[in-house]
Nucleic acid binder design. Structure first.
Lengths: 163, 163
DNA sequence: CGCAATTCAGTTGTGCGCAACTCAATTGCT
DNA sequence: AGCAATTGAGTTGCGCACAACTGAATTGCG
């Protein structure tokens, strides 16, 4: 079948042929829109993602937040420290497992949720896309991420097996 | 018509309903795959993007590179300095306009191109997608970026008018 | 029980991305 | 010509992302 290696060598490396760049640019463009949309909430975009998870689950150990967002402690620890500094979350060492730290929204952090309700609509409007089209794009991207994660973590040769 | 605001308040903020997160995750997944693919070239992913542009155009002022990659001097200046330190590019103040700095690949940087030819194929394989599907995704993402860029630069209220 | 292996959060170091700024060169307006 | 506005690159400061590491708590195996 038709694959990339049918293209001549000069074409292969053209910037505008590469999906990665489109993705990279789109992610940064989203980030910019969120930056302005979240400015008066006092949240950055990754902080907003953490708050989404916490609003949904009420209270979670750092580990679980990281699983949901695919972020490790090296990213989350300082981020959560900043969220604690701005009064959005509380962190408490878990009594039953002293290694684990439980994070939960403060009343102020929970209240922020009301003001965030408008954000998805504004973002949706900024995309200029129909909901159905966005959903389809999302599905494709999730499939892509799954494939890339499988290929990236050393299982390149063998297929990604479900645990 | 069916839009986001038909969904109940609790649903609106669910992480897995938000396109931005899928995009964010996919971009990071790509970054991870590139990280390993580019490791023996000694390039990071953004450095690779810069080299793609330079391989294609031979020599460009910083300004033009920034336009192609949607990056400003705050990002490019240190990145180019690192590329210069690793011997991939040369920087020279333009004689006809002393404000401008022209960047071009060194012989070593140009030679790197040969070794990079294999990268897109490897990345393509990691996506697990057909070329046609990738191309279509790229088109959608570019449209999305264009819409978001228009909305992000302060025209939130009024529709994005073509210049 | 006792100790090695594992798990979890946090730290360190590097690089990207962007806003806000500086500084010099150039352009444009009068 | 003279001077203000603009342009281009660079710097600073901050936050995110990730690799590699530390250190404490827990688990598990003999």
């Amino acid at each position: 079948m038709e694959t990339v290696d049918t293209a001549p060598a000069e074409e292969v490396l053209r910037l505008d042929h590469q999906i990665c760049f489109s993705l990279h640019a789109a992610a940064r463009a989203f980030n910019g829109v969120y930056r302005t949309a979240l400015k008066d909430l006092g949240l950055t975009y990754p902080q907003y993602l953490v708050m989404l998870v916490l609003w949904e689950h009420g209270e979670l150990p750092v580990k679980r937040i990281g699983e949901r967002l695919r972020l490790d402690s090296g990213t989350l620890s300082p981020l959560l420290k900043r969220l604690e500094a701005t009064g959005c979350v509380e962190r408490r060492r878990s009594p039953e497992d002293e290694r684990s730290v439980t994070v939960r929204p403060t009343p102020a952090g929970a209240a922020l949720r009301e003001r965030a309700l408008d954000v998805p609509r504004r973002i949706g409007a900024a995309t200029g896309m129909e909901l159905a089209e966005i959903m389809e794009l999302r599905v494709r991207l999730d499939r892509l991420t799954e494939a890339l994660d499988g290929a990236g973590t050393g299982l390149a040769a063998e297929e990604c097996v479900r645990d």
